[in-house]
Design a protein around this nucleic acid. Structure first.
Length: 412
DNA sequence: AACGCAGGTAAGGGTAATATTCATTG
DNA sequence: TCAATGAATATTACCCTTACCTGCGT
């Protein structure tokens, strides 16, 4: 998509996508300003220069990467780009721009050029070197999205939906062409279409009925447990939505499952409730990660064998509320917030005395002891791929004892 | 002619931010 | 009883990875 062909920026409301203003993501500039201390040590570095070169120069696909991981112990990073990485990329782009004496328009042309090999193939390699553990393809996709002139336009208007419907009717699912007509990024058109346009006539919103919940539970367990698959990782949500008759979309199904139904299933049919113990455990787990910034946390790594009721998603939100409970958190570093929370949550609250509660009593997980003992949980076979978080060896290593505290469970 | 590779588009899979509703507590 | 607070639930824009394809150089 040559730049000059891009449709003009939308005329609506805000102007955060003015061409030539590559912009920090609005998520960052709005709400929470993050303090990033770039002088902190601990930037991931490759111990193997050969691997670093591979990642930054070869366009390795998934298979090839997996093979290198297996055969050569390649280490690379997946998952969301942290605020620190974004800053590193921004700086690298700026550096490239000033070294080559490029204008804003020219740098965008470089980013969006189509097979313009005469320009500079080294561009992407240079950027990738700024984020050492990332494969070049990941950097390529990330930068192209985050510098796209049509990025982040907020909620869809009904006329945009209409335009989208019409465009898909005319062109089929050729998202680049559709994008040009609608004025939204191709991927956003695709998302809007699959998540909201398809089956919009039969889509249900609002609270789930017991029948729906049962049906979803059945579909998910049929698809996973009954096939010997992993209930947390082997669910195809597009398929699930389809099996629900299209009345619930894939996102609805997924969120409903991971945030609500799955923990009930894991808790032997009873709904667990977030407790002060859980908050305590969470704080100490996050603390033990020793990350520079909470955007570096891979929430999937937080749960362990004895403390696994809460989805990564839930934990992340719980963390946010804990963080917001710290006065002035907006202007504090992760370390400063951590220092306060560590003190605030220094003592393990007493286990819930279940007599006082009604029937909903947590089971299974409560903390008996929490120790900060960083351990290397990643087995050698999985160590190769680092989730979007910790440096090697700093996995959440809090030992949380299981205490079946339910002796007084007053189910009635 | 066959092959490997860069790199573009689409499909598959997932999360973040926020609003609303519901429960608990002082 | 009521208001404040925190937890649960729902919504949807936005993001990352993988699959698949094409054109090109060797």
């Amino acid at each position: 998509m040559p730049l000059e062909q891009l449709p003009p920026p939308p005329t609506r409301q805000q102007s955060n996508s003015v061409l030539g203003v590559p912009a920090r993501s609005s998520a960052m500039s709005a709400g929470h300003r993050r303090t990033i201390n770039m002088s902190l040590p601990g930037n991931e570095q490759h111990t193997n220069p050969e691997h670093a070169h591979l990642l930054a120069n070869k366009w390795l696909g998934a298979n090839k990467l997996a093979e290198l991981v297996r055969l050569q112990g390649l280490v690379y990073k997946k998952g969301k780009f942290s605020a620190i990485e974004e800053e590193q990329l921004r700086a690298a782009i700026e550096k490239y721009q000033s070294e080559k004496g490029l204008t804003e328009v020219q740098i965008l042309e470089t980013i969006f050029s189509k097979t313009d090999k005469s320009k500079d193939t080294a561009f992407w390699s240079e950027l990738t070197s700024a984020v050492p553990l990332r494969p070049i393809i990941a950097v390529y996709h990330h930068v192209r999205r985050s510098y796209h002139p049509m990025k982040q336009q907020g909620p869809w208007k009904s006329y945009e939906d209409d335009a989208l419907k019409q465009a898909v009717a005319d062109l089929g699912q050729q998202w680049e062409k559709v994008s040009y007509r609608v004025g939204r990024m191709a991927s956003d058109c695709r998302d809007r279409y699959r998540n909201h346009i398809v089956n919009s006539d039969i889509r249900i919103t609002g609270h789930w009925s017991a029948e729906e919940e049962e049906k979803l539970t059945r579909i998910v367990t049929d698809m996973t447990i009954k096939q010997g698959k992993d209930i947390d990782n082997d669910v195809f949500w597009g398929k699930v939505s389809e099996l629900m008759g299209g009345t619930r979309g894939r996102q609805q199904c997924r969120i409903k499952w991971t945030d609500a139904l799955s923990k009930t299933v894991k808790n032997e049919g009873r709904k667990p409730r977030w407790s002060p113990q859980d908050a305590f455990i969470l704080v100490h787990k996050v603390d033990s990660l020793n990350v520079r910034d909470d955007t570096e946390i891979d929430w999937k790594l937080i749960p362990d064998q004895d403390w696994n009721l809460w989805s990564a998603h839930t934990l992340q939100r719980r963390w946010l509320t804990l963080k917001k409970g710290v006065k002035g958190y907006e202007d504090m570093t992760h370390q400063e917030i951590m220092d306060i929370l560590r003190i605030k949550k220094a003592d393990l609250p007493p286990p819930p005395t279940s007599v006082t509660r009604k029937k909903k009593e947590r089971k299974v997980t409560s903390a008996a002891a929490v120790t900060d003992s960083p351990e290397t949980r990643m087995g050698s076979d999985t160590a190769a791929v680092i989730g979007s978080s910790t440096g090697p060896g700093t996995t959440a290593g809090v030992g949380v004892g299981v205490q079946p505290d339910d002796s007084t469970d007053s189910e009635s």
